[in-house]
Structure formats: C-alpha cells, structure tokens
C-alpha cells in the first residue's frame, strides 16, 4: 500500500501548483456562467461533461509525461493509478477505489474531500445540477486516449446530501492498439 502511494506523491511534487481557492472559485465562476448561458440544468451538466472530455484528451499526455507510470496490466490497476497518482497530481486528493463489480469492469472512486466544492451550496433551483460532472468528462476523455472506452457518472454527491462523493466508472471496451489507427483515411 505504502509503495503504491509514493509515485503519487512524487508526481504531485513534480507539477506546478496554483492556489486552491483560486482554482475552486474559477471553477465556480465557470459553472455559474454556464447556468446563465444555458438555463436548463441538464444542458449545463452535458456542457460540463464535454468540457471535461476536452480537458481529458489533453491532460492524459501531461499525466503520462510527468508521472512515469508504467503500462497498466488491467482495468483494476488503471483505476488504482487514476486514484493514487492521477487525482493526487491534479487535484491533490486521493480517492479510494471500491465497490468492484465481479467482472472487474466497473468500480467506484470514493472521495471525502473534493476541492471543487469547497464553498458551494446548491440552491433549490439547481437541485438537478451535477456540479462536478466535469470530472466524469476528464476521466472519460483521458481513458479514451489510451484506448479504453468508458462510461463515467457521479452516483453520490455531497452537495445533494450524500456522505461521500462517488464516481462510478465502467469499462465498455478496450480498443485494440492496432496500427495503422485509421486505415481508411
């Protein structure tokens, strides 16, 4: 357990930091602006997810460049590395991986501490808002770039009264890394 924690700390030490409050408030401002622009809360959720996706497809390269992590053998190892190294590197927290499905293709990331929501209370008008759905997008985008198609959603949200954040990840398929990637183009 200890040995697996160490690469996360090393990677965390390697990346540039910004003030956590600035980060939280900036994200808040983004969500707020989306709510103004879109009115419908579901649209905002979708928008956040797609923004996350676009971040994820780029962020994965920074992760690979700076974390020095080796290729993962299976999805279990991938989830472990995401929690211990990925989250630590970019958010400064390490969620726990739990609730594995028997086939090893579905698991949850449990987070007690989420820097995105430090000052947030959901008003009655935004109860449908999935405030952190950007994280789902990031995970989906990042994994897709390393040939794993996944479905990621938030099932428990502390802003909605749950006791923990739970992000559910399901591996849909592993796209084989066959070359050339796009034969017909």
């Amino acid at each position: 357990m200890k040995a697996a924690l160490r690469p996360g700390d090393a990677a965390f030490a390697n990346v540039e930091k910004v003030n956590a409050e600035l980060f939280t408030l900036t994200y808040g401002a983004v969500v707020r602006q989306l709510l103004t622009d879109h009115e419908d809360v579901d649209d905002v959720n979708k928008q956040l997810d797609s923004m996350g996706y676009n971040i994820g497809i780029r962020l994965i390269d920074e992760f690979l460049a700076k974390s020095n992590s080796a290729k993962c053998a299976d999805f279990r190892e991938t989830a472990d590395v995401i929690a211990k190294v990925g989250f630590k590197m970019f958010l400064g927290v390490s969620p726990t991986v739990a609730n594995w499905s028997p086939d090893g293709k579905e698991c949850s990331l449990l987070m007690d501490d989420n820097p995105l929501v430090d000052f947030v209370e959901l008003p009655d008008t935004c109860q449908g808002l999935s405030y952190c759905s950007i994280l789902c997008g990031v995970l989906r985008g990042a994994l897709e770039m390393i040939s794993m198609r996944t479905e990621v959603r938030i099932v428990k949200d502390m802003l909605k009264g749950d006791d923990v954040y739970e992000i559910r990840m399901r591996l849909i398929e592993t796209v084989p890394e066959e070359l050339p990637y796009k034969d017909d183009e």
Binding site: I57, R58, L59, E62, L64, A65, K66
Partner: peptide, 20 residues
Amino acid sequence: LKSIYELYSDYVLKNPFYEV
C-alpha cells in the same frame, strides 16, 4: 525525448488555440 514530451504537454496541449 522525455523532456520534450513534458514540454509538449505543457506548452502545446495547454495552449487553447492549438488543435489536437
């Protein structure tokens, strides 16, 4: 080559006007 990859992830991919 590793350092070049790091520069790429920092300066190319984080540039919002760069298209992947």
